[in-house]
């Protein structure tokens, strides 16, 4: 049993738990960033250094930052949740989790331990532009679409002199 792996995993789980229980949006975001960091560590221990870095750079560094920008602008806050609205979803989640774990543990021969081989970034790059070049292109399309869409949705009309934030706060 790889101790750092387990520790990082536990941190990830705890941080995620805090995310969904937070009232303040910014706090929740910060907890999520912590969770992402912890996950990156576990990825390192799985030999996926490249994506661990990518996770931090892109996910924690870009996507989460986007979230933070918007939350700061909007100032989202949620009222505290009533206990009873927790119960059913938790139950459902527990059931689902139980099933998945049960399936996982069904493997004959018990848990497997194998040697981890670190995968080089070069290998990943070769795979991306080799067998998966089509997927890469499509991902590019997707990003373009997202870009254009986001721009269009957020742009101001020529005759619209309103201030987004003030409008929302009113």
């Amino acid at each position: 049993m790889n101790t750092p792996f387990v520790v990082a995993g536990v941190i990830a789980i705890a941080a995620t738990l805090m995310v969904i229980m937070q009232r303040n949006a910014v706090h929740a975001l910060l907890y999520l960033i912590v969770s992402l960091f912890a996950l990156a560590v576990t990825m390192l221990f799985l030999g996926a250094a490249f994506v661990a870095a990518l996770e931090i750079i892109v996910y924690a560094g870009a996507i989460m930052v986007l979230f933070i920008f918007v939350v700061m602008m909007i100032g989202a806050d949620s009222p505290a949740l009533r206990p009873r609205s927790w119960i059913l979803p938790s139950l459902l989640g527990a059931v689902l989790l139980g099933e998945v774990v049960y399936v996982l543990l069904q493997r004959p021969g018990g848990l497997s331990f194998s040697k981890i081989i670190a995968i080089q970034p070069k290998e990943v790059g070769m795979a991306l532009l080799g067998p998966y070049v089509l997927g890469t292109e499509i991902a590019a399309f997707l990003l373009l679409a997202g870009l254009v869409g986001a721009y269009h949705l957020a742009r101001r009309r020529a005759d619209d002199n309103t201030n987004v934030i003030e409008e929302g706060r009113r």
């Binding site: 994506v51 996770e55 892109v58 996910y59 998966y132 997927g135 991902a139 997707l142 990003l143 679409a145």
Partner: peptide, 13 residues
């Protein structure tokens, strides 16, 4: 890892 990268792209968009 390749799948994860695609997933990142999608999540970003």
């Amino acid at each position: 890892q390749v799948m994860f990268i695609f997933l990142l792209a999608m999540a970003g968009a």
